[in-house]
Design a binder for these strands. Structure first.
Lengths: 469, 469
DNA sequence: GGGTATTTGTCCGTATGTATG
DNA sequence: TCATACATACGGACAAATACC
C-alpha cells in the first residue's frame, strides 16, 4: 500500500517512486507483474495523473520497469544486487493449532464421521439447479439487504416440506434460515440466555451442542440416555427448564425416543414452562424403518424449538440449516434480535428454493437414502458375518454412523489402537460423555458416510482380525 | 405426514387410505396434485409396494384419485360435500413484528442508508464470475466440511488484497471468513467475553455493533467522537480494555481518525494489554482523498482486530465479511472455538476468490468508487447551492452517507417531518447516541447509495423548500 | 427433435396367519 | 384335525408414459 504525506519535504512523485521501487526490490511486485495504470493509481491516490507518470518515468529510466503503449508498465527482471533482503516476513503463527482430524489417508479404511461420499453426490443436478438460481438473480437482489430471517419463498417451501415429511406444523413466519447448526444453536442461546440458565443434555450427547451451550454460559445437566430416549425420572429430578434432544436418532447411541417419552417430554416442558430443543440432524436418513414424527409434530408444540440441517442429507459445505421457533420465542426474537442479518447469501437461498420448488429435493432424498442404506446394509451384514459374538451393534437403521460395543472386554483405546495397526480408523466415543465415569469404555463409533461398500467389507474384515483375542 | 401404527387393528393399507383421504378432503392435497408413486411411498413408509397399491386402488374406486400408467395418481375434483372444514389453521403469528423499515416507496426521494444502487451493480460480470466458480466446484467440495476459518486460497488472496489496499499486514492464517459483520463481531465477542468486560464505544456510534456487545454481556462505555476521532482523554479515564472504532469514516459522523490518534490508540491498547476493534466497513469508498492506512497497518499491530466487509462495496446480500485476528486472539480462537464451522458456503467463497484472482475485484472497486463519487459530488454540490447557510455537512468525501446539521434551529424530528411532507425520506441520527442528552438534536442522516443522481438533485431541492423558515 | 434411460401403474405369483367348515 | 378360503402383505416382470440428452 502506497502512503503519501502532503506535509513531507519530498515531493509526491518522489514518494510514489520510492515506495514502488521498494515494492519491486522486496519482491512484493514480482518480475513480470503489471503496475497499476497511471490513471488508476492517480485515482486511488487522489493525485494528478502526471504525478504518477513522473514516478513511473523515473522507474522506467532506471530499468525497473518497461512501458508499452496499450499494455502498461511491466516490472523487469532485476540484477541480483538490486534485491533487498529485508523483505517483511509474514507474522508467523503456530500452525493452525492442533489438527483435530487425523490425516485419514494414513489408514486405508477410514470410518470417519462427518463428510459424505463424493461419488454419490449429484454434482450434475446440483450445478444445473445452481445455474438456474444464479440466472434468476437480479441486480436488485444483489444490492438490497434481504429478509433477516431468510427469503420468504424459501421459508414457505420449507414449511411445506417440514409438514409433509416431518409432521412439523408451522407457518413460514416461524422459520429462520441459518448457516450451520452451530449458528442456529448460537442464535437460540442468545434468545434464551437471559431467561433460563440450566439445560438438560443427553448423556452421552453431541459435543458440538454442549460446547455452544457452555460458551453461552448455560449450566449443563447431563441426563442418561436409555434404549428409548432420556431417563425421564432423572430429567424430572433435575433443575433444568430446557432440554436438548436428538430424538429421531440419538447422537451417538442411535436410540430412538419412543412416542411415550415424546409425550412425557412435552408434558414436562409444559409444566416447567420451558423448552425442548429438537435437533433433527439426520432424520431424512432412515433405513428399514417407519418415519418417526418429530416431537414438534405433536399438537401443542408451543414448547418445542425444531432445528434441521442440509449438512447430512445434501452437503456439509453448503452451510445451511433452519430453525422453527414457537410463538413465544418468535416474539422474543423480533423484540431482541431483529438487528441481526441472515448469515446465508441470497444465492444459496435461491439454490435451495429452486431445489425444493423443482421437486429435485424429494428426488435427491430418495436416492441418497437408497445409497446410504446400501452402505448401511453392507456394513451391518459384514459385521454380523465376520464378528459374530465379538461386538454388539448400537444405533443401526438410521443416519450415517453406528456404535460397536466390544463383548470381549476390549477398552475403547485398545479397540482404536488395534484397529489402527490393521489399517482401520475408528472413532472414539468417550468424548461424548460429560462425566467419563458413566462410560463403560468399550465402544467405538463407525461412520459410513464417506467409505465405499468395498472398503466397508475389507475394513470390517480387517477389524475382525484386529479385535480377535 | 403419514404415520403408520403396526400394532393397530386396522391394516396398514387401510391406515394409508384413511390418511390420504383425510389429506385430500382437507385440501392439503389439492385437486390436480399428484400422489407419491407407489414405489416411493412404499419406500418412505417401509411397507410393500402392493400395500400402498391397495390403498390407492380404494381411493381410486371411490373417485378421489385417478391413475394413468407412467404418470401416477392424480387427485380428482371433489364434489362439495366431500370437503371437510376442520382444516388445520397455520399457527397465527403476529405479523413479522414492527417493520423497522418504513415503506420507502411512499416517498419519491428516499435517502435511505444500507441498500446499494441496483443500476450500478455489475450483474453481468457477477454472473460470469459466479458461473466460473460454480463450474470449479467438485463433488468433493460439496461433500466435505470445508476449512473452519474459510478456504485457504481465498484467505491468501484476501491477505494480499488487504496488504495492498489497506496496508493490513497479516498472514492468511490470521484471517477468518465470516458471513456478515454481525457474525464477525459475535464471534469476536465469544472470544473476549470471559477475558474482558468493559468496552469503549464511539458516541455516537454504530448501533448494530452496540447491540451485539450488549447481547454478549459487555458493559458499554461511550466515549465522545471529535473531529479527528475519539476523545483520548475520556478513553484514558474510562475503565475499558477494549475499544470499538470506525477510524476511516466514523459512523455516523464521518470523522476520520488522525494518524496521531491512531498511534495513541495503539499505545493505549499496548499499555492496557487490550484490543482495538477496527471496523473498516466502507474504507474502499473514498472520494477526493488519499487512502488512509488502517490502524492495523501500523507496525506492532498485536492489539488490533481488523474487520472488513463486502456489504458496502460489493453486495449486502452476499453476506460476507472477514476478520483479522492478532496472534494472541488467534491462539485463543484455536483453543476455544475450534468446533464452530465457517458460516459461508463453499460456493460463495469460490465466487469471491474467483473475483479477486481474475482481477475483476480491483476493477470493480475502481468503477464503484467512480459511481458513488459522482453521486456524492452531485449531492454535496446541490446542497451547497440550494441550502447555503441552512445546513452544515458532516462526513463528506467517503462512504455512502453524510450528516446534515441544521443551522436554523430545527430539531431532528422537525427536519424529518418537514422532509416527509415534501416527499423526502431522511433518516434519524438520534438512535446512534447511547446517552441522548449528548445529542444536539439538530441532525439527520442522508444515505446516497440507492438513489439516482437525478433524484438526489430533486430531493435536495425539495428538502431546501421543506426546511426553509 | 429423436432415441434412450428412467419412472410408473398394472398384473402376476407367493407367503403367512386366521377364520370356517 | 385337516383342508379350504380369505385377508393382508411382499416382490418381480412388463408396457406405457415421461424425462433427459
Amino acid at each position: 500500500m502506497i502512503i503519501l504525506d502532503n506535509n513531507s519535504q519530498t515531493p509526491l512523485y518522489a514518494q510514489i517512486y520510492e515506495q514502488l521501487k521498494q515494492e519491486i526490490a522486496t519482491g512484493i511486485l514480482p518480475e513480470g507483474s503489471r503496475l497499476p495504470s497511471t490513471r488508476h493509481l492517480a485515482q486511488t491516490l487522489a493525485v494528478g495523473r502526471n504525478t504518477v507518470e513522473y514516478a513511473y518515468l523515473q522507474l522506467s529510466s532506471e530499468g525497473y520497469v518497461t512501458s508499452r503503449v496499450g499494455s502498461g508498465f511491466t516490472v523487469e527482471k532485476l540484477s541480483g544486487f538490486m534485491y533487498l533482503t529485508n523483505k517483511k516476513d509474514s507474522p508467523q503463527v503456530e500452525q493452525s493449532s492442533a489438527q483435530d482430524k487425523e490425516p485419514s489417508n494414513l489408514y486405508p479404511y477410514h470410518f470417519q464421521y462427518g463428510n459424505l461420499s463424493a461419488q454419490d453426490f449429484p454434482i450434475h443436478m446440483w450445478k444445473k439447479i445452481s445455474s438456474k438460481a444464479l440466472a434468476s438473480l437480479t441486480a436488485e437482489d444483489m444490492t438490497a439487504y434481504c429478509d433477516k430471517m431468510g427469503e420468504m419463498d424459501l421459508r414457505h417451501d420449507l414449511s411445506v416440506y417440514l409438514q409433509e415429511s416431518r409432521g412439523v406444523f408451522c407457518s413460514s413466519e416461524q422459520i429462520i434460515i441459518c448457516s450451520g447448526f452451530d449458528y442456529a444453536l448460537t442464535l437460540l442461546c442468545q434468545l434464551l440466555r437471559n431467561k433460563m440458565t440450566h439445560i438438560a443434555i443427553e448423556e452421552p450427547g453431541y459435543i458440538g451442542a454442549k460446547n455452544i451451550f457452555i460458551d453461552n454460559g448455560f449450566t449443563l445437566l447431563p441426563v442418561p440416555v436409555e434404549k428409548d430416549g432420556l431417563n425421564m425420572e432423572e430429567l424430572e429430578r433435575s433443575s433444568a427448564d430446557i432440554v436438548y434432544v436428538t430424538p429421531s436418532h440419538q447422537f451417538p447411541t442411535g436410540a430412538v425416543t419412543s412416542i411415550q417419552k415424546r409425550l412425557l417430554l412435552l408434558e414436562w416442558a409444559k409444566r416447567k414452562n420451558g423448552f425442548i430443543i429438537e435437533d433433527d440432524y439426520d432424520s431424512e436418513l432412515r433405513y428399514h424403518s417407519r418415519p418417526i414424527p418429530s416431537i414438534s409434530s405433536v399438537v401443542g408444540n408451543e414448547h418445542v424449538v425444531y432445528i434441521g440441517t442440509f449438512s447430512k442429507a445434501l452437503s456439509p459445505s453448503l452451510r445451511m440449516s433452519y430453525m422453527v421457533l414457537p410463538k413465544k420465542l418468535l416474539n422474543l426474537y423480533h423484540n431482541e434480535l431483529n438487528m441481526q442479518q441472515t448469515p446465508v447469501s441470497i444465492l444459496d437461498q435461491r439454490i435451495i428454493q429452486e431445489l425444493m420448488r423443482s421437486g429435485y429435493w424429494a428426488n435427491h432424498l430418495r436416492k441418497t437414502c437408497v445409497v446410504y442404506k446400501k452402505k448401511h446394509d453392507v456394513l451391518i451384514r459384514t459385521i454380523s458375518e465376520t464378528m459374530e459374538g465379538m461386538v454388539k451393534i448400537h444405533g443401526k437403521n438410521a443416519g450415517l454412523h453406528i456404535l460397536l460395543e466390544s463383548l470381549q472386554g476390549l477398552t475403547e483405546k485398545e479397540m482404536i489402537e488395534r484397529a489402527k495397526e490393521h489399517g482401520v480408523l475408528v472413532m472414539p466415543v468417550s468424548i461424548f460423555w460429560s462425566d467419563p465415569t458413566n462410560y463403560s469404555d468399550n465402544m467405538v463409533l463407525l461412520g459410513f458416510g464417506n467409505i465405499s461398500e468395498h472398503d466397508i467389507i475389507q475394513g470390517i474384515k480387517a477389524l475382525s482380525l484386529a479385535w480377535k483375542i
